[in-house]
Design a protein around this nucleic acid. Structure first.
Lengths: 239, 239
DNA sequence: CGTTATATTGAAGTGCGTCAAAAAGTGTGG
DNA sequence: CCACACTTTTTGACGCACTTCAATATAACG
């Protein structure tokens, strides 16, 4: 059930059998969430954190003119709001993009974890810092990359993130959102998103259709995006 | 010396005398850094983290066309690279914008801190999650806000962040960077930054000149920016 | 089969970038 | 104190990336 979390962690560090057991005891109570459902609202007090088991979720913020920025995408094995463990409430909303399965970790149990398992604590701390590293790369995209490069970069990032949890088949992966929502990740309108996708298609780099991304030319896509996976910390290092 | 860190932490939580003492023992060895000096390079192995005592620093990433995105600004009391404690190397560079004073915390000592002081560990974890919350708000700015609103929002954010560490005098604060560097924070060219600043000046909201920000109409600035300080977590909550 | 969401394309408008030059500020040495 | 070099700010003209508005096409669905 939480095996994708272990895959994600073991790409980055050693995880002992005891630590694995502790996580299995901490993360419990499976639940299902339909697509397009807000699972967490900004400001509400939190007493547990959520691990994504299956499906795709996002965090987002809105402006009053109705424009929305998706600030993060989450794939299976990611915590949606582990940062909420120390923040106590969120500064953003969280919603499902596809039907999802989730599991819960009570904050009271996480407190005990920080008291008894310092290495595991640092590893969980690491995962929130990894989220922040992805935020920084998105800031670079939103601030400086062109529309096509932004889209190309996102496709490269998800290729790597999904690959390590076993969710890439050949050169394609499920990416269940529509062009409007993709535009909300990329800081552009649905119309322009459509044009950007057409350019990637015509340049034979990647296609996005019906919630499926097909990478036709990974090297070309990475070159266009100036993608360097270093910010995903895919190296195994003691934390 | 590290009192601004205590101001920052005590806005958010109780900090015991013992914890304060632990931090004083952990953060040592004062150093000076001239302006415009790169203090940390992406990729290099880290064995300590840096606390900013005085001055202004930034983290940034470059693209090959020479465009740069500043992904975070740091004010006195902030760690520059506490995330580096769990990441082990950085995905970005860090440089000083003004002459700075810094102090060091050895990672070996931080490891011991995580083993012996779980609440303090959670508080330090919190500060890295606060950095991430600021990243998210910048993503919203870069993706969805107009140029003027982005600038206005940044001025509001720094007003609050500097205020809690005692670095706002009346309605103004030191913000020692030039228009090019400000543009690198805001995802815009120096030329456009200049025009945006003129608009804020002409609308009598704020002025930025000679490294000094003067807020003329805080409410107006906040309204233009849709600024809501909630993402800065200025409330005292047990972590 | 009709209804609704999603994708696609066109045309026109705008915010921001680019290029270029001038003006103002800053520091240095004489 | 001025002369000079250099950086930073400011402004103008023009171009492009992206938005907006609108219409049509296609797919999804009960």
């Amino acid at each position: 059930m939480i095996d994708r979390l272990f895959l994600k962690l073991r790409v980055r560090d050693l995880l002992s059998a005891e630590e694995e057991a502790v996580l299995r005891e901490t993360i419990v109570e499976l639940a299902e969430v339909p697509a397009k459902k807000t699972v967490l609202c900004r400001g509400e007090p939190l007493h547990r954190s959520i691990l994504l088991i299956d499906g795709l979720m996002c965090r987002y913020k809105d402006l009053r003119n109705g424009r929305r920025q998706i600030s993060a995408l989450h794939v299976p094995g990611d915590f949606l709001d582990l940062h909420g463990f120390t923040l106590k409430h969120l500064d953003h909303d969280v919603m499902s993009l596809s039907p999802c399965r989730i599991a819960y970790a009570e904050h009271s149990r996480l407190v005990r974890l920080t008291e008894e398992f310092p290495h595991l604590t640092r590893l969980l701390w690491f995962t929130t810092n990894l989220d922040a590293a992805i935020h920084r790369e998105w800031e670079l995209s939103l601030g400086q990359r062109t529309g096509v490069a932004r889209a190309a970069h996102l496709f490269c990032e998800l290729y790597q993130r999904l690959r390590i949890v076993g969710l890439v088949q050949g050169q394609s992966y499920a990416f269940p959102l529509n062009q409007s929502e993709l535009g909300e990740c990329l800081g552009m309108t649905p119309v322009h998103t459509n044009r950007v996708l057409r350019e990637l298609r015509e340049r034979r780099l990647a296609t996005f259709k019906g919630g499926l991304v097909v990478i036709e030319d990974l090297r070309g896509l990475e070159a266009l995006a100036e993608f360097d996976a270093a910010y995903l910390y895919l190296d195994s290092t003691p934390r």
